[in-house]
Design a protein around this nucleic acid. Sequence first.
DNA 1: AATGAATGAGCCTTCATTCAT
DNA 2: AATGAATGAAGGCTCATTCAT
Lengths: 198, 198, 198, 198
Amino acid sequence: MKRMPKIGMEPIRRRALIDAAINAIGERGALNVTMSDIAGRAGVSTALAHHYFGGKDDLLFATMRHILTQLGNEIRPVMADLSGQNRVRAIIAINLSPEQFRPEIIAAWLAFYVEARRDAALGRLFRIYVRRLHSDLMSGLSGLPRPAAIRTARAIAALIDGLYLRRALGEGVEDSAAAIALVEDYFDMALARGTPNA
Amino acid sequence: MKRMPKIGMEPIRRRALIDAAINAIGERGALNVTMSDIAGRAGVSTALAHHYFGGKDDLLFATMRHILTQLGNEIRPVMADLSGQNRVRAIIAINLSPEQFRPEIIAAWLAFYVEARRDAALGRLFRIYVRRLHSDLMSGLSGLPRPAAIRTARAIAALIDGLYLRRALGEGVEDSAAAIALVEDYFDMALARGTPNA
Amino acid sequence: MKRMPKIGMEPIRRRALIDAAINAIGERGALNVTMSDIAGRAGVSTALAHHYFGGKDDLLFATMRHILTQLGNEIRPVMADLSGQNRVRAIIAINLSPEQFRPEIIAAWLAFYVEARRDAALGRLFRIYVRRLHSDLMSGLSGLPRPAAIRTARAIAALIDGLYLRRALGEGVEDSAAAIALVEDYFDMALARGTPNA
Amino acid sequence: MKRMPKIGMEPIRRRALIDAAINAIGERGALNVTMSDIAGRAGVSTALAHHYFGGKDDLLFATMRHILTQLGNEIRPVMADLSGQNRVRAIIAINLSPEQFRPEIIAAWLAFYVEARRDAALGRLFRIYVRRLHSDLMSGLSGLPRPAAIRTARAIAALIDGLYLRRALGEGVEDSAAAIALVEDYFDMALARGTPNA
DNA sequence: AATGAATGAGCCTTCATTCAT
DNA sequence: AATGAATGAAGGCTCATTCAT
């Protein structure tokens, strides 16, 4: 009864393998996970992982794309429903939400960041995300003069990443809320200076 | 003429191997460099690398320690000669100096950051650096109320790391000078707010 | 036609690898055989040997256990069907049978004996065998006073091992039959003295 | 003051290296000792060990020869001063003396025994020893009929080796004295049977 | 007399990947 | 749809040995 090959298993297996990859990377802390490990966590053979993804690089690429897509899915309604500084605050909150602050997610981010320096496809993926974040922030900073807006968007993005990085070491800010507060504090200052009469 | 073994080679070889490791990591972008690669760049056999360092992990550890030591050597005179906001500005400038902004150095930082999550010794090394940077910054922020000083120190540190991270992707700020300007800008705001009458 | 993977290969490969290990040890004369050599004799890659056994030590351990198990399988019926001096004589005959006197088996015994001094697991394996042989012999010597029985059991065991050792050099007794005769001769004397009226 | 190259160091170094080899083999339990280990124990560089012995095999060969020579030196006076069964008893006592029963000596014996199966020179060395022991024993057994003498000599030799072997495992007989008693017991029986009227 | 420096060769082990079923 | 079987390639590490000094 155990073997009941059903049709339409593909999406289920793909998702299970991606989740397994995230978990594996999260635990190992880097991309030097083995296909064996990932497949084992997903409860399938390594051969099947190859069957569905083609190779290790492809699986890892799909995994990172999944993470970025998830993040994008959370951002989208913000862009639709909010504007101005509320939009910026929402973006900050989502990027530093407890969900994104989970250790295994941070580990995966970091590991992929490193790998992106060499893997062209991965690099493209990240650059798209980076630019999108920048333009999303800019769209919420239209109240500021353009040079100040650029500067502020860059600083917010850098703060977010920096807080991730230190979080990976277990140093720095305590938790998600503290991280958000820190960036908000910066944003408040930037706003106060940029819009004297607001 | 090829074989001309002299005595006192140890420090020379050690240094050559560490430099080779930095270069290798810089090019490969991660810690999955091979001893073969490193040794080849240093112009020696892998056996010799093992002879002097014991193993791959030890060599990489020594490499990261070397990088941190170099940074520490640049910071030290600042701590001796400057104080107050000048001290803070000097720390920022050094951490984001063109030297530290070299691609291979950034790559090494990142790679080691990732690895530090699992390698206990490496983790300790980084935590020492992180805490030292924090206390160095704090010592230059005595003009601010303590909570504001803590917040500011954390933000500066996060900004520095975040700018590194984005730099690794070739995105974000253009160069060392722009990075410094960005952090200084933040610092100016924090000072302005913290010391109303200054 | 070269690649025809079937299922259920595991026991076949394991056995082939163990046999190959025995042969390799027999030819090399010691445990410094290479996985490459063993795998080659078994007609498989070294990777497969690792796949099935985990590592060199595990394979060698399994090999020695196999040899001891084989011996145990020969002894078992003797313990079930015979008793008294017949039991003892049968044990002697089996331990020194032509099968056990094969050069490669002797070589393996010797090599493992040496290794057992350091490998804890191997040491345990041997000690179990040694004690079992002793108790088996004792059970056939119940006709003798206990001190004499102990002495006799020890002497028989030592004679068996000693004959092996010398056989390894190609010195001493000619063949299996001569070895058995030598130990039997001792046993006859021990019996004659121990049971004056028999 | 530490470096005072004296003349006539050769015999001193050679002896130190041989002693170091015995210790190393005794601790490691097998011949897979390293030149580095041996040289270290002798307080010299590996290069010097090569200088004096030519290579690892040569050093190990010299080590075994040393052990056999030492044993021969103890036997010689016995052959000169004793005869008959006293000679035999003395040979037994020396071969199983506490000195020969030292763990490191047993380990070395065993290890060399194994190696002797392949190393021709070592094999020759051992065969000489085996034959000499046999002829020494025979010369003390002239009171027995020749076939009985041969059998007895072989049994005594096998008992000695067998007791060594089990001793290596920490099983069997308790100590040197018990080992000697066991062989003597056999010898008494053999004598009693062979010389009814003595 | 002695050694530091250096290496080549070899071994164990891991792992992504392929293939027939 | 899924897997067991199997391997090639590569990496880390060890060690005996050589050489110039």
